[in-house]
């Protein structure tokens, strides 16, 4: 791909240090994001997807700490920046929106005050110009009568409207990268459709790159160009969006896709993945997915496979695709159903 890369994360490791115990929430995550594109980071709870997002802007909660790796943004390694330098990037070159629009705005300040604050910090706009720009931003994100809205407090707005305000705030300084952490999970589906449409339109108009953190494969299919599937703090598969749905490679990705109850077709029986999502405190030693994988062999349980680039350009972390595979050489990961039942 000849495209310019805006973000290149290499071997990112983030842990939570509780007393003498290290919980490895993100354990060697690497991916690239071409400029102007959207990457989806998908995973279930405890996969480390949100922690990865928080690590980029170093917004981790207290005992969380980046232990190693690089986050290269336009040639700079963000992990090496001072607190002051990262503050200049936050809300300016890289913005973030969060899952809970209901609680993500400060209840004691007006919408206008909160948007103005970003403009003042990064662009030095005064109150009058800030208000003017805030009104422009609110109308950009489709909020009706923005002149009135700037004077309102968050509690006077619905969840969907608050998420629009969050987006307006994130866009205030024309960021090059927008990180959206489950931006529509807390919203109703008709409102989710509005917000996803808005993010797509704005991305097209403003040329932003987007990282979309989600657990919803539907959201991924509709908004992303590339997908990184995370499991147990690691990326297990990375492909472009069409390929990942058409030919998923990792058994986890296959299981995830087979677990989704579809609203557009009838399925008699879902094919769930057996067992439970592992806790970061208690990760399997070999492949993180081995205990739940219908194909797991002794090798999988003992040794962790690496994330390898395949002939078609996709990246997979699974022994099946390596020379060392010690299971059935004819195995077809996509036909997990038969295997799962025979077991």
């Amino acid at each position: 791909m000849s495209q310019e890369t805006i973000l290149d994360i290499k071997d990112l490791r983030t842990s939570f240090l509780v007393e003498d115990f290290e919980v490895k929430a993100v354990d060697g995550v690497s991916f690239k994001l071409p400029k102007g594109k959207t990457i989806g980071i998908v995973g279930e709870s405890g996969s480390g997807k949100s922690i990865t997002a928080m690590s980029i802007l170093q917004l981790l909660d207290k005992p969380g700490k980046i232990m190693g790796g690089e986050i290269n943004f336009k040639g700079k390694d963000l992990t090496k920046l001072s607190e002051k330098e990262i503050q200049n990037i936050r809300g300016n070159e890289i913005s973030m929106i969060f899952q809970e629009p209901m609680t993500s705005l400060n209840p004691v300040y007006t919408i206008g005050q909160q948007i103005r604050e970003t403009l003042k910090v990064h662009q030095g706009l005064n109150k009058q110009n800030g208000t003017k720009k805030a009104i422009e931003l609110l109308s950009l994100v489709g909020i009706p009568s923005p002149e009135q809205r700037v004077k309102q407090y968050p509690h006077e707005l619905s969840g969907g409207m608050r998420q629009r305000v969050m987006i307006a705030m994130a866009l205030a300084c024309n960021p090059e990268l927008l990180i959206a952490d489950e931006p529509t999970t807390a919203l109703d589906v008709t409102i989710q459709a509005q917000i996803l449409e808005l993010i797509k339109d704005l991305q097209k108009d403003l040329g932003m790159s987007v990282i979309m953190i989600t657990h919803d494969m539907g959201v991924v299919a509709e908004t992303c160009d590339y997908v990184a599937v995370m499991y147990g703090g690691k990326v297990v598969e990375y492909q472009d969006v069409k390929s990942i749905f058409k030919s998923p490679k990792h058994p986890y990705t296959v299981g995830l896709l087979n677990s989704i109850p579809r609203h557009d077709t009838d399925v008699d029986e879902l094919e769930p993945i057996k067992g439970n999502v592992p806790s970061p405190k208690d990760m399997p030693v070999g492949c993180r997915f081995a205990p739940r994988c219908p194909f797991a062999t002794e090798l999988c349980e003992k040794e962790l496979p690496s994330l390898d680039t395949q002939a078609d350009g996709s990246e997979v972390r699974c022994w099946v695709y390596t020379d060392r595979w010690d299971g059935d050489p004819e195995v077809n990961v996509r036909e997990s159903k038969r295997t799962a039942e025979s077991e």
Binding site: K246, R262, H263
Partner: peptide
């Protein structure tokens, strides 16, 4: 109709 059409479909080809 609107509700059904709002749901993101997990298939980028559709």
């Amino acid at each position: 109709k609107a509700l059904l059409s709002s749901i993101p479909t997990p298939d980028p080809e559709v």
